[in-house]
Simulated assay, not measured.
Amino acid sequence: MGDDKDYYSVLGCEKDASTEQIKKQYKKLALQLHPDKSTSDTGADFNLLSKAASTLTDEREKHKYDTSLLEKRATCNKIVNDEVNCDDFSHDEETQSYLFDCRCGGQFVLGKDEFTSIAKSQLVDCNSCSLSILVISSR
């Protein structure tokens, strides 16, 4: 198991599994992976399994988790229309944001914190149309 798998995969459940199905699958896998029951080093796997089960059996946490999965998939499926160096953004003193003009007349907008926290790259959407750009850090 690894952190790169989603919680449903960790538990071996479908996305539409009921809370009872998730609990049942957790108990089955917990017996196999519990550090006191296994001869191999399964502590990390057991911890991930426990985190997955606690998240997916709590209605509020499950909703937040499912929403984050949808956002990740949507981001992965977006078409990047251009790559722009962060040095090409202009700074708006009044709003403390960084702007790059889109060909539609709208703008790609990053707040000060977003702009300064770009490590390698960040996908940014236009505020007026469906275009997206990949902002590349020059730092």
Rank of each mutant, 00 (worst) to 15 (best):
M1P: 11
M1E: 10
D3K: 14
K5E: 09
K5C: 11
D6K: 02
Y8M: 09
Y8G: 06
S9T: 13
V10G: 04
C13L: 09
C13N: 08
C13Q: 11
K15H: 13
A17T: 07
A17V: 03
A17M: 08
A17E: 07
S18A: 04
S18V: 11
T19M: 13
E20G: 05
E20T: 13
Q21E: 15
I22F: 07
I22S: 05
K23E: 10
K23I: 08
K23L: 09
K24T: 15
Q25F: 08
Y26C: 02
K27I: 11
K28A: 06
K28T: 01
K28Q: 10
K28Y: 08
L29A: 02
L29V: 03
L29E: 07
A30C: 08
L31Y: 12
L31G: 15
L33I: 02
H34P: 05
D36L: 11
K37D: 07
S38M: 04
S38K: 04
S38E: 07
S38D: 09
S38H: 13
S40E: 12
D41H: 12
T42L: 04
T42H: 02
T42S: 14
G43Q: 06
D45F: 04
D45W: 06
F46E: 08
L49K: 07
S50T: 15
S50L: 08
K51C: 06
A53E: 15
D58M: 00
D58Q: 00
E59R: 01
E59L: 01
H63L: 10
K64M: 12
K64W: 07
K64A: 08
Y65P: 01
Y65M: 00
Y65I: 01
S68H: 04
S68R: 03
L70Y: 15
E71N: 14
K72E: 14
R73W: 13
A74V: 05
T75C: 10
C76N: 15
C76Y: 11
N77S: 13
I79R: 04
I79F: 03
I79H: 02
N81T: 00
D82I: 00
V84A: 03
N85P: 12
C86F: 12
D87I: 12
D87M: 09
D88V: 06
F89H: 05
S90E: 15
H91F: 14
E94F: 02
E94V: 09
E94S: 08
T95F: 13
Q96D: 11
Y98T: 12
Y98V: 09
F100T: 01
D101N: 01
D101R: 01
C102Q: 00
R103K: 05
G106T: 00
F108E: 00
V109D: 08
V109S: 08
L110D: 05
K112V: 06
K112W: 10
D113P: 01
D113K: 13
F115R: 09
F115N: 06
T116C: 10
S117G: 10
I118F: 04
K120I: 10
S121Y: 14
S121E: 14
S121I: 00
Q122G: 03
Q122D: 00
L123H: 06
L123R: 12
V124N: 00
V124H: 05
N127G: 01
S128G: 01
C129W: 04
S130H: 05
S130W: 01
L131D: 08
I133H: 04
V135E: 02
I136E: 12
I136Y: 11
S137M: 07
S137P: 11
